Amino acid sequence: MPIEALDRTDRRILDALQHDGRMTNQDLADAVGLSPSPCLRRVRQLEAAGAISGYVALLDPAAAGLEVSAFVRVRLVQQDDRHLAVFERSVREFPEVMECYLIAGESDYQLRVLVRSLQAFEDFLRTKLTQIEGIAQVQTSFALRRIVYRTAIPIDT
């Protein structure tokens, strides 16, 4: 369901839940100007329609001992269906890969990798990533400091 197809109240519900997914239905209803029953009904409809895909707790990587954030660009030897499928199936299995995108440009993929240390990154690179069939080149940049990190998508309320 495209966000644009939602009315103002549904958008306000989505915006509020993105900022506090644990708020009670009563608090949500108060925030968006509904009574609890219609509010809960709208939330259930948004879930059923796929506008809300799930609920999570966001953890601090540093608190979990994951101090190194790397951005890895990968170029394949050939960008055909077989090589793409092999690569994508493989990286889905690596818990260190937080995000992976098929991209346009000099590289074929960009990954965000989260690990405990530079040694752990080297191990990941040598024993996992570069073992995937069809990789031609890997380039890595390391994050020095996070400037912006958002989990809430912009919703025009």
Score class of each variant (00 low, 15 high):
residue 103 I to F: 01
residue 98 M to Y: 00
residue 114 L to I: 01
residue 107 S to M: 09
residue 98 M to P: 00
residue 120 A to M: 03
residue 111 L to W: 01
residue 99 E to G: 04
residue 114 L to T: 00
residue 117 S to L: 14
residue 80 D to F: 05
residue 120 A to C: 05
residue 106 E to R: 10
residue 122 E to R: 15
residue 94 F to P: 03
residue 116 R to D: 12
residue 111 L to S: 02
residue 76 L to V: 10
residue 93 E to Q: 15
residue 93 E to S: 14
residue 77 V to Q: 08
residue 125 L to T: 00
residue 76 L to E: 05
residue 126 R to F: 05
residue 78 Q to E: 13
residue 119 Q to I: 10
residue 109 Y to H: 02
residue 77 V to L: 11
residue 126 R to T: 08
residue 106 E to A: 09
residue 75 R to N: 06
residue 124 F to C: 00
residue 94 F to S: 01
residue 81 D to L: 14
residue 103 I to W: 03
residue 94 F to I: 07
residue 79 Q to C: 10
residue 117 S to H: 08
residue 74 V to H: 03
residue 85 A to I: 09
residue 99 E to I: 04
residue 85 A to D: 15
residue 127 T to K: 15
residue 109 Y to D: 04
residue 110 Q to H: 13
residue 120 A to I: 01
residue 119 Q to D: 14
residue 90 S to T: 11
residue 79 Q to K: 15
residue 93 E to A: 14
residue 81 D to Q: 13
residue 104 A to V: 12
residue 106 E to V: 09
residue 84 L to M: 08
residue 78 Q to H: 11
residue 87 F to K: 03
residue 94 F to H: 00
residue 117 S to G: 07
residue 102 L to S: 13
residue 100 C to Q: 10
residue 91 V to S: 02
residue 79 Q to P: 05
residue 96 E to A: 02
residue 127 T to Q: 15
residue 125 L to N: 12
residue 125 L to W: 11
residue 95 P to H: 04
residue 112 R to I: 12
residue 115 V to R: 01
residue 101 Y to I: 09
residue 120 A to K: 03
residue 108 D to H: 11
residue 73 R to F: 10
residue 117 S to K: 10
residue 123 D to P: 03
residue 105 G to E: 02
residue 86 V to R: 09
residue 82 R to C: 05
residue 88 E to D: 08
residue 103 I to E: 06
residue 85 A to P: 03
residue 102 L to Q: 10
residue 104 A to M: 12
residue 127 T to W: 11
residue 84 L to G: 04
residue 122 E to K: 15
residue 82 R to H: 11
residue 74 V to C: 08
residue 119 Q to E: 10
residue 95 P to W: 00
residue 109 Y to N: 07
residue 122 E to W: 12
residue 122 E to F: 05
residue 106 E to I: 09
residue 115 V to T: 05
residue 93 E to W: 07
residue 114 L to C: 00
residue 120 A to T: 01
residue 93 E to I: 02
residue 94 F to R: 00
residue 126 R to A: 13
residue 128 K to D: 03
residue 77 V to A: 07
residue 87 F to C: 13
residue 79 Q to W: 13
residue 110 Q to S: 02
residue 89 R to T: 13
residue 124 F to T: 01
residue 124 F to R: 00
residue 116 R to I: 01
residue 128 K to Q: 10
residue 116 R to Y: 06
residue 123 D to F: 10
residue 89 R to W: 06
residue 93 E to P: 03
